[in-house]
Amino acid sequence: MSERTYVDIEAELTDQPINFDEDICLAENVVYIKPQTLIDVPMHYCPGCGHSTAHKILMEVVDEMGIQEEIIGVAPVGCSVFAYHYMNVDMQEAAHGRACAVATGIKRIMPEKYVFTYQGDGDLAAIGTAETVHAANRGENILVVFINNGIYGMTSGQMAPTTLPGMVTTTSPYGRDVKTQGYPLYISNLLANLPGVAYVSRHSVHTPNNVRKAKKSIAKALEYQKQGLGFCMVEIVTNCPSNWKMTPKQSNQFVEEKMIPFYPLGDIKVPEGK
């Protein structure tokens, strides 16, 4: 079955406007509810940003596994610095790049609990590279949710370690020149080579199908953590409409046409026998 693209889905939606007269609000017809561990407050994320979806699926998994009281999260510095305002689980806010070290401290002292970090590309793959690589190499039994949108969002659009070649940012105004500004860092592939790493999988949240796959991957990773298999990372390739200077729709097209070809989706490493 060929995958529907974001553009296809939008076309379908416009063709079939929602009929508010139907009884979609009746309890017996409920097909979806917001995850209970996602706090019901307006998020500070820009319209169209993938963070909110990534937050939601992570909390859906926590709900479905029934582990709200057994999980501790670590928030990064970056756009998702306030993740603890939205995720109704115990959390710690780490210094920039240090989430994997903080998570190590938490997990080592409470190996029976689930521990995750939620980090952007600048946090995880620039300033926090050492902490990330060494936590992975020690096989710390944690989940890292890695949000890759190829840009520094919080500081308004500077070049990230994952910025595509030629991509314009405020600090690569003529496009990222790999000769002087280096190459995008394939951090997930790099980590997958380490023996302490159990599972690395790359996903996106720009279409419903991809959202479902990303969610399944997070669920798998937490299951692997329960089994004590080691370091798991779920990378989510996503958008940044505000700093890419695009509409949400354009930014999702960019994800599909530029980001995903560069960062192909799918499993990069799976535990033996899984």
Binding site: A103, G105, I106, M110, E131
Partner: peptide, 24 residues
């Protein structure tokens, strides 16, 4: 007691942050 050789002092103090945050 947990004893862990960190990759740097930067990591060590942040591991302290995490475990201290867990009330240890």
């Amino acid at each position: 007691m947990v004893v862990l050789q960190a990759e740097s002092e930067v990591a060590a103090i942040n591991m302290i942050y995490g475990a201290a945050g867990a009330g240890r």
